[in-house]
């Protein structure tokens, strides 16, 4: 196996694993996990409230 193959495999695992882990962590924290942008969401505080409740 060439070095580039190892690098590509590691990169792929990191990207896929990172995306899945981030979305799970965000969901647990009550952060934006909906896929929409908070800045333009008139209901962004719904997620914020969830976060506060989780922290409580």
């Amino acid at each position: 196996m060439q070095p580039i193959e190892i690098i590509v495999i590691i990169a792929c695992v990191l990207i896929v694993g990172g995306v899945i882990a981030t979305s799970i962590i965000n969901k647990k924290k009550g952060k934006n996990s909906c896929g929409c942008d908070c800045a333009n969401c008139s209901s962004c505080s719904v997620c914020k409230n969830k976060k506060e409740n989780n922290e409580k």
């Binding site: 990207i15 896929v16 995306v19 981030t22 979305s23 929409c36 942008d37 800045a39 333009n40």
Partner: peptide, 20 residues
């Protein structure tokens, strides 16, 4: 914000999906 969100989504969820 729309552009930032779209690019963010393309390089996270969409990128991971295309690899899978």
């Amino acid at each position: 914000d729309k552009a930032k969100h779209f690019i963010e989504k393309a390089f996270t969820i969409i990128l991971a999906s295309t690899i899978v």
